[in-house]
Design a protein around this nucleic acid. Structure first.
Length: 264
DNA sequence: CCATGAACCTGGTCGC
DNA sequence: TGCGACCAGGTTCATG
């Protein structure tokens, strides 16, 4: 489900947890984490120092550890005034003033306790808005004999882009998803980087995209749906030309693109 | 090095 | 109404 903008919306919605204490934890499905006991011992009685995002990870900093959450496809993390018992409510964390609820229909999501973030950092590349990511460094990291769609989805290069935004970015940049990274010129690369930032910035401002069931803060939907130009627009007319939006499986994911606009 | 498919799960939709 | 096939905002591992 959630890509960078959606995860950011979730992180922002949890802001009031900062400076609260974790009073208790109720784990109903331990499949979503390695060890129930260790988990409980590590977080109960701890204070919440900050809540941030790195790639698609939600990072809740405690006194002496990090509670790290990845929502994968259908995970939800939200605050509630009351305890919640729904079919897929797997974890309930009672804090000073709230209940922090984790639920996940497909159970792909994960919660883990880390003493430092090296494990996460090792997996992830640049944040899309990192100033160190410029046209030259982008050109370097995607200089591979691999299609650009797969490269954009590769979290170890740039962290946070998923299937929706990869397609939207490539449409905006007018680059064909199957073009290999190494065949792209510096001009092409600069278009992709600029499109990445514009698309993600707009999506963040719109609190993400709700296609199937993404929500933050319990029931709020992402409004970027109205901005989608290719994703979920198969067989519909391209907004820029008279052609029809095509789909093809690329990098293992359904990819949406305009065969006429995206020729490079 | 690169592409592809399967696995992890549940639920919604579509065609018959 | 039911049933099977196929699809889904992600990641990781195994196989050619």
């Amino acid at each position: 489900m959630p890509e960078l903008p959606e995860v950011q919306a979730v992180v922002d919605s949890l802001n009031e947890l900062i400076n609260q204490e974790i009073m208790a934890i109720e784990i109903r499905a331990d499949v979503v984490m390695p060890s129930k006991t260790e988990f409980t011992n590590c977080i109960v009685g701890k204070n919440i120092k900050s809540i941030t995002r790195r790639g698609k990870y939600i990072i809740i900093q405690l006194d002496d550890a990090y509670l790290v959450v990845h929502l994968r496809m259908t995970g939800k993390l939200y605050l509630s005034a009351d305890n919640v018992t729904k079919k897929h409510t797997h974890v309930v964390i009672k804090t000073t003033n709230n209940f922090l609820i984790f639920e996940d229909t497909r159970r792909f999501g994960r919660l883990e306790i880390l003493t430092d973030l090296t494990k996460i950092e090792k997996k992830l590349g640049f944040e899309p808005f990192d100033k160190k990511l410029d046209n030259d460094s982008m050109h370097q990291i995607i200089n591979k004999n691999k299609n650009i769609k797969a490269l954009l989805l590769d979290q170890s290069l740039i962290a946070g882009i998923g299937n929706i935004y990869a397609d939207e970015i490539l449409f905006k940049a007018k680059i064909n998803p199957e073009t290999t990274g190494k065949s792209l010129t510096l001009i092409d690369v600069s278009k992709i980087l600029q499109s990445t930032r514009e698309i993600l910035d707009q999506a963040i401002k719109n609190k993400g995209t709700t296609i199937i069931n993404f929500s933050y803060a319990g029931d709020q939907k992402g409004a970027f749906v109205k901005n989608l130009k290719v994703y979920k627009r198969a067989k519909l007319e391209c907004f820029e030309c008279s052609d029809v939006i095509a789909t093809k499986k690329i990098a293992g994911r359904t990819t949406h693109f305009c065969p006429t606009c995206q020729t490079i």
